[in-house]
């Protein structure tokens, strides 16, 4: 059994959908950074759009503490990166059986390479969060993220005259 990095001690990608403008800059940053091409299909995260409501939702791998993708992979292709805590897919070991993406929809399937691919936190500097100007996607510690949101609620109660 792989010993997982404890999620609260490291930074991870966190999402606040209410701040998402649906611009999909993140999809472009992701696909260009990893694949050298601009394509939503090649992005490791996607924006789900509700156009009639003007709302959007960033769908991103949360690098779970008990990752089902890891359990589903019997080829040993999914491993945790000790530095970032991200579950990474070893393309050389992946057979393209798609077991992982049947248990979790945050994993993609590369249309040309025919292997699974997923968010690797860009080695510790996730580009989606880097270019998200509104704070819909942030890269931070879970507690820091929660305290920021708690403080926003508290501000309304305490600072409002």
């Amino acid at each position: 059994m792989v010993i997982l990095v404890i999620a609260t001690s490291i930074k991870t990608l966190l999402v606040d959908p209410s701040r998402c403008t649906g611009c999909r800059t993140c999809e472009m940053a992701c696909s260009l950074y990893h694949e050298g091409k601009c394509s939503p299909v090649l992005s490791r995260m996607r924006i789900i759009k509700y156009e009639a409501l003007g709302k959007s939702y960033p769908a991103i791998c949360s690098q779970c503490s008990k990752p089902q993708c890891l359990s589903a992979c019997d080829k040993g292709a999914i491993k945790q990166n000790e530095k970032t805590g991200a579950m990474n897919i070893d393309e050389a070991l992946c057979t393209g059986c798609r077991s992982c993406l049947t248990v979790c929809p945050q994993i993609g399937f590369h249309p040309q390479k025919k292997v699974a691919f997923k968010c690797d936190l860009c080695g510790g500097d996730p580009q989606c969060a880097r270019f998200c100007t509104t704070g819909a996607i942030t890269f931070s510690g879970v507690d820091e993220f929660l305290m920021t949101r708690r403080r926003a609620i508290a501000d309304r109660a305490v600072l409002a005259v």
């Binding site: 209410s18 403008t21 649906g22 999909r24 800059t25 409501l53 003007g54 270019f131 100007t133």
Partner: peptide
């Protein structure tokens, strides 16, 4: 203002989404 909207790949996001809260048109988005 209900929330802001961005066109594709736009960091400016000048787009608006409005909600009417009161009056004859209350509830319209």
């Amino acid at each position: 203002l209900s929330h802001r909207e961005g066109c594709f790949a736009c960091p400016i996001s000048c787009g608006r989404f409005s909600k009417i809260k009161e009056g004859k048109y209350a509830g319209e988005i």
